[in-house]
């Protein structure tokens, strides 16, 4: 159960990337996602790839582990490549097999689109690998702060998010425990017809819901007992602070973008 939760799971560390303010990381990644779409020649693609690879190295995480983390996406990247290979009919014909033609333009198109896809996934996974979910929540709350003026319940949303994060491991444990208890009573989730398998989920879901509701009720009571009445008059312990590291990172990042745009056609 726990084993397939490692996709992009936070790995604590003390690398440069780990130490950046989560807001810096969020801004960089968000803009990077947009900028990738502006790449239009091999120089600009190469520049962005280089940037992404340097980021990977800076996290000091094992490259194999990061690549394994995006395993589910590999298939999509490959699929995108094949699709463009077949559909695009531009440029000279490279190969012709049984009526299918593969054009030079198709290879190029396929490569660039899947590279783009790969860069997006890679860089986004770096965010979740080096930033704890709670930091991401804080960063989102801070960056969305201005929306409070137009009555968006930013604080409540952030609290909901942090409580969900806090209870994910608890609920995963619970799921595992109940599915093991039912497996011991002869439930088999892995074999049998689709209909059987759907029925086999009921003994897992019902106890899970009951326990989640019970937890929610007890948690609400505990929060009330500790004086929680919404965001009004609340102070905050968590405080994000830009450090000199963040300013440097931002300056470097902006120069990288400027170089990127000068490399475009």
């Amino acid at each position: 159960m726990k084993s397939f939760m490692i996709i992009g799971q936070y790995v604590p560390g003390n690398s440069l990337i780990h130490r950046l303010d989560p807001r810096t990381k969020l801004i960089v990644i968000f803009t990077f996602v947009i900028i990738v779409f502006f790449a239009n020649n091999s120089w600009s693609y190469g520049w962005l790839t280089l940037f992404a690879l340097i980021l990977v190295l800076l996290t000091r995480l094992r490259i194999g582990y990061i690549l394994k983390g995006i395993t589910p996406v590999w298939f999509l990247i490959f699929f995108t490549f094949i699709l463009h290979l077949i559909i695009t009919k531009e440029g000279s014909v490279l190969i012709e097999i049984a009526g299918f033609t593969i054009h030079e333009g198709g290879v190029l198109q396929g490569l660039t689109i899947s590279l783009r896809f790969f860069l997006l996934v890679l860089v986004t996974s770096l965010l979740t690998l080096t930033t704890s979910p709670m930091e991401i929540t804080d960063a989102i709350e801070a960056l969305l702060g201005p929306l409070k003026k137009i009555k968006v319940p930013v604080h409540e949303l952030a609290l909901m998010m942090s409580i969900s994060l806090r209870f994910i491991p608890t609920l995963l444990d619970e799921t595992e425990k109940i599915s093991k208890a039912q497996a011991s009573r002869g439930v088999d989730l892995r074999t049998g017809s689709i209909k059987d398998r759907i029925y086999a989920i009921v003994p897992l879901l019902v106890p899970l819901f009951i326990s989640a509701f019970k937890r929610a009720e007890e948690l609400a009571m505990a929060m009330e007992a500790r004086g929680y009445r919404g965001s009004e008059g609340r102070t905050k312990l968590r405080k994000l602070q830009f450090k000199s590291l963040d300013f440097m990172a931002m300056i470097i990042y902006v120069s990288i973008i400027i170089i990127f745009f000068s490399l475009r056609n």
């Binding site: 619970e174 425990k177 109940i178 011991s184 002869g186 019902v206 106890p207």
Partner: peptide, 22 residues
């Protein structure tokens, strides 16, 4: 397949077994 036959012979009462009622 074999595991199911085994599980019929080995009963497990987990911690807080009442949580498995449904």
């Amino acid at each position: 397949q074999d595991l199911k036959k085994l599980r019929e012979k080995v009963g497990v009462v987990f911690q807080y077994p009442e949580h498995q009622l449904f």
